[in-house]
Design a protein around this nucleic acid. Sequence first.
DNA 1: CCAGAGAGTGAGTGGTCAACCACACTAACC
DNA 2: GGTTAGTGTGGTTGACCACTCACTCTCTGG
Lengths: 188, 188
Amino acid sequence: MKTERPRQLSTAEERRETVLRTAIGAFAARGYWGTTTTEVAKAAGISQAYVYRLFPSKEQLFTAVVEHCFVQVRAALEQAAADARGSSAQVVLDAMGDAYARLISNNDLMLIQLHAQAAAVSEPAVRAAAQQGYARLVEYVRGASGGTEQEVQQFFALGMLCHLIVSIGVDEVDAPWTRTLAAGITHY
Amino acid sequence: MKTERPRQLSTAEERRETVLRTAIGAFAARGYWGTTTTEVAKAAGISQAYVYRLFPSKEQLFTAVVEHCFVQVRAALEQAAADARGSSAQVVLDAMGDAYARLISNNDLMLIQLHAQAAAVSEPAVRAAAQQGYARLVEYVRGASGGTEQEVQQFFALGMLCHLIVSIGVDEVDAPWTRTLAAGITHY
DNA sequence: CCAGAGAGTGAGTGGTCAACCACACTAACC
DNA sequence: GGTTAGTGTGGTTGACCACTCACTCTCTGG
């Protein structure tokens, strides 16, 4: 009764990807400084010591998580742009916005971007990752949508507004000011 | 040579205000979890122990700092709105935006708002302070400008875009994507 | 079946942090 | 001069954190 089990132990590369995926949830709550490597290890189901065999430092782990998130966001926008190919710039941007709204319905991905911003202020490596992430995102959105500078800028401004809405829990409160901030912003 | 010194009992209150003012600079770099109470004490020129005589906990200290920042922002917008009284909604909003740009030329005030967002995710007290701060801000901007929901929302979306620009240092890079994000945003 | 390469961990280490406490200093008032 | 009330600090504590190392376990190729 020897079932086909190609591997019981994971390869280091597989583990690294598992850690990257699960660390998103760990870092999402309390960001770079507020999250311990023990929490990251627990989320990944490995020992804390092994985190340090897979990543050289907490900083590089967090930076890798941030990069991973940007890749996911970009992939979602690419999918949306492909579906809306040939339409007007506004339609493409709307499709991208909708795809982004769906992608971040989980919230963790967006919170990582917020915490990346916060950490970028004083951590050069994180800042570099965030700069590159946004650089690629902006260039891609401009190229794929063909929108004007203003339209693209507006797209990202609304994205940042989304971060505010989620982070301070605007959607938990029903009041005139919350309706103003969240007007027209879909939340799946 | 006995000079007149009327006050003496309010000195603790004075100290508290000093700490609030100087703690902005301390928390601005690394936020709630990344900043130690020793750093806050050093910035205020007092011992770390005395911070805990003035504030019951680090959380309440940070929350007070956040509230203090919102008060300052609101005061700046009020001044701008007073100067532009009687103009159209867009003119008032522009004046407010300009006042905000001037206020945060120091960066620290804005970074506190960013770190408040980050901490609000998992710290209920900070979240409550941020909610109240933005609630008052939104209501005030709407009332003082008379702008439509969309205009007011746009005002705050651009504010959030400012946070991104400063936090990841967009203005340090000169590239098409940075020009797109920062287009029309004045930075004193 | 065994040797070795790589996956994975338990048990630390040195250092730091939030919070606390006992105590010193100052000034006002009697 | 002595009491009292408030300002302010040095020193400590126990918990926790990033990071390390010696070690075990598992798989694979020969």
